[in-house]
Write a protein that binds this DNA or RNA. Structure first.
Length: 160
DNA sequence: GCCAACGTTGGC
DNA sequence: GCCAACGTTGGC
């Protein structure tokens, strides 16, 4: 097994009404807390590295799609909102001694020439295998370099 | 606002 | 450890 030194690529979903790519641009860095799905957590905890690139996806939006590029800016650390009884994300099975949920920092990286809608992604036959289209409920998901590059290409073509 | 898809919970 | 019931996500 060879050591993987290449950047990994991801797609992370956020509802723009709650936290949009524009919000990330303004804030620069945000802690990606509130994820309560084990697969999504495991990607953040085990597989993400500082410098990985992220397609920032707007879900439940009009339209939904890829709004910009972000980058992973910290290793995973315990998600303190899971200990906070007043948080919407409180989980009584998670404690500071034995945290169940973890998250990473996500930072603004760059804007895209144009928004790439879910509809455009669906129409691109080369993107048929994207997790986005096959496990639509996963909020943190891996993307291949090829898929990432194709999205960027689509964004250039759609650009103004 | 509806509802399909799917992850999680809990009874057995 | 199975699986039905339930709750949530997210497109439309």
């Amino acid at each position: 097994m060879s050591k993987q030194e290449d950047t990994n690529y991801w797609l992370m979903k956020s509802e723009p009404d709650v936290f949009s790519f524009e919000d990330l641009m303004a804030k620069k860095t945000t802690f990606w807390d509130g994820v309560r799905n084990y697969m999504a957590r495991n990607y953040m905890m085990r597989d993400m590295k500082v410098g990985d690139l992220v397609l920032f996806y707007h879900s439940n939006a009009k339209p939904s799609g890829i709004a910009g590029i972000a980058t992973i800016s910290s290793e995973a650390r315990p998600d303190a909102s899971s200990f906070d009884k007043n948080s919407d994300y409180y989980d009584q099975k998670s404690t500071p001694d034995k945290p169940r949920w973890f998250a990473v920092d996500v930072s603004f990286y760059r804007t895209l020439p144009s928004f790439v809608s879910l509809d455009q992604v669906k129409k691109n036959k080369k993107l048929k295998k994207m997790v986005l289209l096959n496990n639509s409920r996963l909020s943190v998901q891996p993307v291949t370099k090829n898929e990432f590059d194709l999205i960027l290409e689509m964004s250039q073509l759609g650009g103004t």
